[in-house]
Simulated scan of single mutants.
Amino acid sequence: MKIVTNIARAAAAAAAAFPRPSALAGLDLLASAVVIVDGTGHIVYANAAAENLLESSLKALSRQKLCSLFANPAELDNVIAQARAHKFSDLRQELALERAGREALHVHTIASALDEPSDNVLLELRETVQQMKLDREERLLDQSQVNKELIRNLAHEIKNPLGGIRGAAQLLEMELPPLHLQQLREYTQVIIKEADRLQTLVDRLLAPHRRPHIVGDVNIHEVLERVRSLMMAEFPSGLAIVRDYDASLPEFRGDKEQLIQTVLNIAHNAAQALAERIDAGDAQIVFKTRVARQVTLAKVRYNLALDLHIIDNGPGIPPQIRDRIFYPLVSGRDGGSGLGLTLAQTFVHQHMGVIECESRPGYTDFRILIPLP
């Protein structure tokens, strides 16, 4: 942490003395969020990690006071004031910065006064939950790989006996005595129909592994508009689907049909969870796209990534299954197959991405991160 601090301070001091665009370029390579505030508390610089952390661009942030972004600014304001007064060479503190409508931002904060200009303060903000997120993503990837192998092997083992059971039931039906044909045929039809139902389930489990990965240029907003039209056709009233798009997002190489299925599975689950709100007429799903910078996915660092959010105002995911929602056959509603999110996760992993989920009553956010060129 000390090395990172010294690098950031040196780069920021150089930028203050020589205000060239390239002077701050090195700070964009840091994993820590770096923010420089002036004597009035306004943001004069934020690196790429800070833009991700604060969920806004430098252009938008530069018009605001850093402390005004949070509902409890007193502690952060005090840290900045103490650093500006040179009470410490660098002041380190753990802060919980509250944000309206979202979970608090828990960060390890390092504040350092700059020599030039003398009233500027450099802040490093590192999420204390970031390492936990990386560990969780790694566990999810490992678990996904284990699930994939288990499902594939199990499905193949189930297919052969199913075919035999169905065939035997059909042969038995043909041998039934005419006198009791109608009465006994009911039982053979139960066997045949249940075998067909299990065959359909097995086919769905194997679908991601059978279908070839068809790669082409993908515009994520075309994907979202396709899903939106499908959802509005199924839920014509009571559900609003809000677009919040970043038009600057570039196209990327991917499988368009897989991505449509991924977004559709998540959005359809959300709509089913919103049943009561749809009846009341105030259900909402938000499709939000942004560019994430300097992100780590599966231990690989990417300069840019698609940051797609599918947000609903439903009741939230039950706590007892929140950590298992991507496992196969785990469902939060009666009659659910528990395969929609499993397939979505598989498709996103095939694009070298990850799916994260944050949920509480009234707010559920599925976040999809996929590397961009």
Results as ranks from 00 to 15, higher is better:
1 M>A: 14
3 I>D: 14
12 A>W: 02
31 A>R: 11
37 V>K: 02
38 D>I: 00
39 G>D: 14
43 I>V: 15
60 A>Y: 06
62 S>Q: 14
66 L>D: 04
67 C>M: 03
67 C>R: 07
72 N>S: 04
73 P>H: 09
77 D>A: 10
81 A>W: 00
89 S>W: 01
90 D>M: 08
92 R>W: 02
93 Q>S: 07
96 A>V: 10
102 R>G: 00
106 H>G: 02
112 S>K: 11
120 N>E: 10
123 L>C: 02
124 E>W: 00
127 E>Y: 00
129 V>M: 10
132 M>L: 11
132 M>A: 11
135 D>I: 14
137 E>G: 08
140 L>I: 07
142 D>Q: 15
144 S>D: 12
145 Q>S: 11
154 L>F: 04
155 A>R: 03
159 K>F: 06
160 N>W: 08
162 L>I: 14
163 G>N: 14
164 G>H: 08
164 G>V: 04
166 R>M: 06
181 L>Q: 15
181 L>Y: 15
182 Q>C: 04
185 R>T: 12
190 V>G: 09
191 I>F: 13
192 I>Q: 14
196 D>R: 03
197 R>F: 06
197 R>V: 02
199 Q>P: 00
199 Q>M: 11
200 T>D: 14
202 V>R: 04
203 D>H: 09
204 R>N: 09
205 L>T: 02
206 L>S: 05
206 L>M: 13
213 H>R: 13
220 I>N: 05
223 V>E: 04
224 L>S: 10
224 L>P: 05
233 A>S: 15
234 E>Y: 01
236 P>G: 06
242 V>L: 14
246 D>N: 13
250 P>H: 07
252 F>N: 07
253 R>Q: 15
254 G>D: 10
255 D>H: 10
260 I>F: 01
260 I>A: 05
268 H>P: 00
269 N>K: 05
270 A>Y: 10
271 A>E: 03
271 A>T: 03
272 Q>M: 15
274 L>K: 06
277 R>N: 07
279 D>G: 12
280 A>P: 02
286 V>R: 14
303 N>H: 12
306 L>Q: 08
307 D>Y: 12
311 I>Y: 10
314 G>I: 02
320 Q>L: 13
335 G>K: 06
336 G>P: 08
337 S>Y: 01
340 G>F: 01
342 T>C: 09
343 L>W: 00
345 Q>E: 12
347 F>Q: 05
347 F>C: 05
349 H>I: 13
350 Q>R: 09
355 I>N: 04
356 E>P: 01
358 E>L: 07
366 F>Q: 08
369 L>Y: 09
373 P>T: 10
